[in-house]
Design a protein around this nucleic acid. Structure first.
Length: 680
RNA sequence: CGCGGGAUGGAGCAGUCUGGUAGCUCGUCAGGCUCAUAACCUGAAGGCCGUAGGUUCAAAUCCUACUCCCGCAACCA
């Protein structure tokens, strides 16, 4: 019997679970259930990831403590997971004493290994908010080219990279105030010390080949940079014991949460943590998304190795979810929260659909809504459940035959495929497992067809034959359900009830049931109603629109949400003279050309009236077709310094609102404005 | 030459590692059945396996080049 410790990435306490997250938790849950069914000892732990600036800022904005915020989110997360049948053995929080203790332990080991270095860093400090500002919370004027309103780490105009402290006229996006420069001590992990170990470990088969290559090409080909793991107060997190006033960066304590949560589970179960994290006997399996492999395959093993913990046996990495071939989109209604899904649809549908799409490769997974409906209905309802619903009632009185009848080897064939299907589950090739199971299901229905129990029952002399046929069909059905049980726990439970047993073990599939009563049959699974899918999408779209006023023209002024403003607060005050430096002009788009090689850009030719023409590259390709742009009036920043871009020189910038992606909204003057007129 | 993945009947995919009759599900069409949740069964149509070369007795499969698509990275909202 193998002993397995299994984790999914810790969901961040700043947001709700959506169907994209669920790919990972369902993938993990299926694997865990499978392992338990084949008799391995598997423990599935997870926790909320609770620390960091984002949590602190949000708690402040909502006028409550961080603890209150994360408690509420943890509850919401666990409710969503439970709704999808995701069963953790323990669900903790990174904000726990258990986790703090492990952080201390790992920290001490890093110190002992002389892997911690200190360095003073000049950082911007927002005096109004009383906090240091991460790069993304600062904007200002580029020190090199003078472009205004640039991000804190690099200039979007000239491409210069710099530190936020170098910005001319920096502005805090939290308060709009001008931050001051303060020196602060930061602590770094000198991960380069583990370079040789990591180079070997990442190529050892523990992680998918694609990922190993990625790490080799992007990080391990040169010395690894020191990892900044501290943040000065105020910060919501754990204070570093030997560096008062400094806190561990959220990404330091997040993975450690795996161990912290395990420690809590051990405490409750009377187990020893060392049996799970410092033992060759226990395999550690992480399930993560490709976006965070960097943390899990470099820093994490380096820390574990240094502190003498077990290294991950395997890191299972999955891709992202797309819906109908596109990224999840709020405006399209495909950004679907777990709780919203559950209001409309059975979680087993999604469990099955994802299972049919998952493999051991790092691939994105597409939720095609039309296919979703068709697959679930034809596979689960039409093929599998149908076997029971067309035969169970014929044996309601007689029960199953006392001896398993001659079925021409059908059941044996079903049983023999078990090992192969199990291997597919083990390897994470759920799609392959589902295909094999459905292949079997496709053999079962013709059997029923051939035996025609509805004919047999007309002749009392054939009662025995009828009972035998149904015994075969129901046993085939039962075996299929056992194979599907890791994916469809609810169907497995109902099937168990039909047969008067509990489905807990894979080996049950190998032996047919005989001589026992069959419970009254009732529908085990409803067909997917496409209308409900549509309703779910429509509601998601409406709710997203209500949250983001910029994307909801129908929203009236009094209903506008404050989110857009909160997300991007008003900049520092300026005088009229500053504003007048910006020369905004009305311009007419006289030509709009595709820039085929560019992802975001459209090449515009603007007329400022008369013979005056400008070429401007605008990043609006995702929102506007060039043909729709020609002729319309826009507002252009006319005195912006020309900028050399990959595809040509851009001589200005057109003004637009919106968060980006498909949600970009060009500003246009009302009728009557003429190209060349100044906007002021 | 930025990194990676992909291209197989109308749709979604398997098959590619380990060359040897091109397969599955859905959809379509024609029958059948009526036990079953407009479910199920039988049959049919539909593919020169992205393109062009090469290796081989034999290529969807191996090799080379190219084209297109999708992620990620870069590009002014």
């Amino acid at each position: 019997m193998r002993q397995l410790l299994i984790t999914s990435a810790l969901p961040y306490a700043n947001g709700h679970i959506h169907i994209g997250h669920l790919v990972e938790y369902l993938q993990t849950d299926i694997w865990v259930r499978f392992q338990k069914m084949i008799g391995n000892r598997a423990v599935y732990v997870c926790a909320d990831d609770t620390h960091g600036t984002a949590i602190m800022i949000r708690a402040r904005a909502e006028g409550r403590s961080e603890e209150a915020l994360i408690a509420e989110m943890s509850e919401a997360h666990q409710r969503d997971f439970a709704g999808f049948g995701i069963e953790f053995d323990h669900y903790g929080s990174t904000h726990s004493e258990a986790n703090r203790a492990v952080c201390h332990e790992i920290w001490a080991a890093l110190r002992a290994a002389d892997m911690i270095v200190e360095e003073d860093i000049a950082q911007l400090f927002d005096t109004e908010q009383g906090t240091f500002l991460a790069d993304r919370f600062v904007r200002g004027t580029c020190p090199r080219c003078g472009s205004k309103d640039q991000p804190g780490d690099n200039c979007g105009s000239c491409g210069a990279t710099y530190s936020p402290v170098d910005l001319v006229d920096p502005v805090s996006t939290l308060s709009g105030s001008r931050p001051e420069i303060r020196e602060a001590k930061h602590l770094f992990v000198r991960i380069e010390k583990m370079h040789d170990f990591l180079a070997e470990w990442t190529q050892s088969g523990t992680i998918p080949t694609e990922s190993a290559n990625y790490l080799k090409n992007f990080f391990l080909h040169e010395p690894l940079r020191d990892w900044d793991v501290s943040r000065p107060a105020p910060y919501f997190g754990f204070e570093i014991p030997d560096s008062p006033g400094n806190y561990w960066y959220v990404w330091f304590d997040a993975p450690i949460g795996y161990i912290g949560a395990t420690a809590e589970w051990c405490e409750r179960q009377g187990e020893k943590l060392d049996d799970w994290w410092r033992s060759d006997r226990t395999e550690v399996h992480h399930f993560i998304g490709k976006d965070i492999q960097y943390f899990h395959t470099l820093f994490w093993p380096a820390e574990l190795k240094t502190a003498g913990f077990s290294l991950p046996t395997q890191v299972h990495i999955h891709g992202f979810l797309t819906v109908d071939g596109e990224k999840m989109s709020k405006s399209r209604g495909t950004f679907i929260r777990a709780s919203k899904y559950l209001e409309h649809l059975d979680p087993e549908y999604l469990r099955y659909y994802y299972a049919t799409k998952l493999s051991s490769r790092v691939e994105d997974l597409d939720l095609n809504l039309g296919e979703f409906v068709a697959r679930v209905n034809s596979d689960l309802v039409g093929k599998v459940v149908n076997l029971a619903s067309r035969t169970a009632k014929f044996v309601a009185e007689s029960g199953l035959s006392a001896e398993y009848p001659d079925d021409g080897g059908l059941f044996t064939r079903f049983a023999e495929r078990g090992a192969e299907i199990a291997a597919a589950y083990e390897n994470g090739d759920y799609g392959k497992a589902m295909r094999m199971i459905m292949e079997l299901a496709d053999q079962a229905n013709p059997y029923v067809e051939e035996k025609a129990p509805w004919e047999l029952r007309k002749d009392p002399a054939k009662a025995r034959e009828l009972q035998d046929a149904c015994t075969v069909a129901l046993n085939l059905f039962r075996t299929l359900v056992i194979y599907l049980a890791p994916v469809l726990p609810s169907l497995a439970r109902k099937t168990g009830e039909l047969f008067g047993e509990t489905i807990t073990s894979w080996s049950q599939a190998g032996t047919p049931l005989t001589g026992r009563p069959i419970a009254k049959f009732s529908h085990m699974m409803q067909r997917v109603d496409a209308a409900k899918v549509e309703a779910m999408i429509a509601e998601s779209r409406e709710e997203a629109a209500a949250e983001a006023p910029a994307t909801a023209p129908e929203a009236k002024t009094r209903e506008d949400s404050g989110d857009a403003l909160a997300a991007n607060p008003i900049a520092a005050e300026i005088g009229i003279e500053d504003f007048l430096k910006t020369d905004l002009r009305v311009a007419r788009i006289v030509a709009a050309d595709e820039v085929p090689e560019a992802k975001k850009l459209v090449k515009l030719t603007l007329s400022l009236g008369g013979e005056s023409r400008r070429t401007v590259f605008a990043g609006i390709k995702s929102a506007y077709a060039p043909a729709d742009l020609v002729g319309r009036l826009v507002v252009v920043v006319a005195n912006l310094a020309p900028r050399q871009m990959k595809f040509g020189v851009s001589e200005g910038m057109i003004i637009a609102a919106g968060p980006g992606g498909e949600d970009i909204f060009l500003l246009s003057p009302d009728d009557g404005a003429v190209p060349g007129q100044r906007v002021g």
